[in-house]
């Protein structure tokens, strides 16, 4: 059944986040031949419309306002509800990001609709659009369908492949004027901690350190390897609790959930709460000096050894490989 699906793109530092392109791909599947309409909010975002279309949106609607430069739940919901009013969609897809998690449930409540959060896969099965999502901290999966009303979902970054960029695709980018008013939340200050370098939730490669890293300086060899691979550095709670790094790097049940192509765990024992955040990574490498460490049970490849000996060698070897490639 063809349906019109809206995709809310997410702009960070002037560009569209990768998850927005993944969301377009998910919207294409959900639309079953219907129209995919990209939606962008910010103070000046219409220039990004063309790229959204090259990744598969049919057209783009923007709402531009100084007050939409930074995300607030009030500002974005006023803008989105106006777009929904104009477009009358049958489906909506967001990224399951800080912004998507914050905004989507509110919109769903307002529209009295269901919402399927943190989707890692979707497909049409027996006439139904079926969404797959992890439950029980990634230890099980459920398949869900919408039984009543709007088809509304947020998708987990790094799981649904974006469509190939097609530079010849064009479409209409129109703007909708919305009066943004009475914002009840005022952002006084933003303290950036995490976003130097690659974003953990979207990184294709993560080099993560645990208590075995032993100090703040101990993270240096991990950073060097991550740099060579264009990846991000993550950590176990053990490392965060010991003050070797900031909590913003924590991966696990109470930290971030990540699904990179490659996860390299260094000096991490593999506690169940840590596994909850990374066990769905495509390939896991464990480096640990204890051959009995639990992390080896989930690892695809393991090296038993001292991380401070292994990492420099690994970095050197990758450098050579990538220079020759």
């Amino acid at each position: 059944m063809a349906r019109k699906v809206l995709v809310l793109g997410e702009v960070r530092e002037g560009s569209l986040r990768n998850v927005s392109f993944e969301a377009v791909a998910a919207a294409k599947t959900s639309a079953e031949g219907g129209e995919v309409v990209g939606v962008l909010f910010g103070d000046s975002v219409s220039a990004l419309g063309a790229e959204f279309i090259q990744y598969g949106a049919d057209r783009v609607v923007t709402v531009e306002d100084e007050q939409l430069k930074q995300y607030t739940s009030d500002g974005y919901s006023q803008a989105l509800l106006a777009v929904i009013d104009q477009e009358d969609p049958e489906g909506i897809i967001f990224g399951h990001t800080a912004q998507g998690k914050d905004l989507a449930p509110r919109i769903a409540a307002k529209l009295e609709s269901g919402l399927i959060s943190d989707v890692t896969d979707l497909e049409v099965e027996g006439g139904n659009l079926v969404f797959t999502r992890p439950i029980y901290s990634g230890k099980a999966f459920e398949k869900k369908i919408v039984t009543d009303g709007l088809l509304f979902a947020t998708i987990r970054p790094n799981n649904i492949a974006p469509l190939e960029k097609d530079e010849s695709r064009t479409g209409d980018v129109s703007s909708l004027s919305v009066e943004i008013k009475n914002l009840r939340q005022v952002i006084k200050e933003v303290v950036r901690k995490a976003t130097e370098g690659v974003d953990l939730s979207e990184a294709k490669v993560i080099v993560a350190g645990g208590r075995g890293v032993k100090s703040e300086e101990g993270f240096e060899p991990l950073k060097e390897l991550a740099d060579v691979l264009g990846g991000a550095v993550g950590a176990s709670r053990g490392a965060c609790d010991a003050d070797y790094c900031d909590y913003s790097l924590q991966i696990g049940q109470t930290g971030k959930v990540v699904t990179p192509d490659l996860y390299i765990a260094c000096g991490i024992s593999g506690a169940i709460q840590h596994l909850a955040g990374m066990s769905n990574s495509k390939i896991i490498v464990a480096i640990n000096k204890d051959p009995e460490a639990n992390i080896f049970k989930v690892a695809d490849y393991g090296i038993v050894g001292d991380l401070f000996e292994v990492l420099p060698l690994l970095t050197k070897e990758f450098k050579e490989l990538l220079v020759n490639a």
């Binding site: 269901g114 459920e142 369908i145 039984t147 989930v298 490849y301 060698l313």
Partner: peptide, 24 residues
């Protein structure tokens, strides 16, 4: 409810990983 769970499954079992051997 507006949505419904139609199936619950466990993640695919991972093959035992490969622990490498020999000189570092």
């Amino acid at each position: 409810a507006k949505t419904k769970t139609i199936e619950i499954s466990l993640p695919p079992k991972k093959e035992a990983g490969k622990v490498l051997e020999g000189e570092l």
